[in-house]
Design a protein around this nucleic acid. Sequence first.
DNA 1: GTCAAACTACGATGTCTCTCGTACAATGGG
DNA 2: CCCATTGTACGAGAGACATCGTAGTTTGAC
Lengths: 136, 136
Amino acid sequence: MSLVQWGCHRFRDEGAAAVTDTASTGRALPHPDREEIRLEGVLHALSDPMRLRIVRELAAGEAELSCSQFELPVTKSTTTHHFRVLRESGVIRQVYRGTAKMNGLRRDDLDGLFPGLLDSLLAAAERQAGRGGTPG
Amino acid sequence: MSLVQWGCHRFRDEGAAAVTDTASTGRALPHPDREEIRLEGVLHALSDPMRLRIVRELAAGEAELSCSQFELPVTKSTTTHHFRVLRESGVIRQVYRGTAKMNGLRRDDLDGLFPGLLDSLLAAAERQAGRGGTPG
DNA sequence: GTCAAACTACGATGTCTCTCGTACAATGGG
DNA sequence: CCCATTGTACGAGAGACATCGTAGTTTGAC
């Protein structure tokens, strides 16, 4: 049938992402620019219970949190993986601080791109959690 | 390490779903009840470009649409697959009418469960489409 | 310098997903 | 009854994903 190949479910190009996060230490992490953030990528990132939970905890507190402050029922390797997915999809921003890696929601960028979306999503997760689901 | 196994990324239980859609013809299709709809499942369904596109077309028009009215760049088999994912996640409702299968957004159920979410998602998709993405 | 803490890299594994093609079933019109 | 239209079932293949374990790197404290 020879159909158009327009790269479905492939959100990990990143291409030349901005690597300009020289925090207190020298290590930098690749983040997509605001304009590179794709809705499908964000939804994919948030469609995993573990990641939705992370984002909910991140949204609950004001400050940034290090990876180790999340008590997730998975190993450290898996935790690293989930945080990377969140960062590469543009949902969170990660910065090294000493041996820790601090995580913060990219609220400004997400609100700028998709006004109201993040709040709706968080409210939805909250509602479902109250209903007896386990997404956070 | 022996961690808790709490069924991550497994949204397809459905269990005893409601199969009470005897439309004009006799064939019925399993839909999750409103309370069975899970946010993660909805996000997962919408994280695919093809399905996001379907939902956007569905939301644009008022009336229900048959599967064949969507001109998707995939085969019929694949189209069937995507519509099933959307139905099983609770995003759309499907009903047979003659040889056609009519599709409608489950707006009431989604708005009831997650107020504002669907609109935010559609607005986000619209915005991204205007920006030059291809999600619809 | 040594050491613990925090996180990463890599490879493996099992499952899921997207896609297809072919063959099949249900419906309604002549 | 025959047939076109519409959609399904099934099986397969390529690739993505979540998870793990082990081994390694980076950092800061002593």
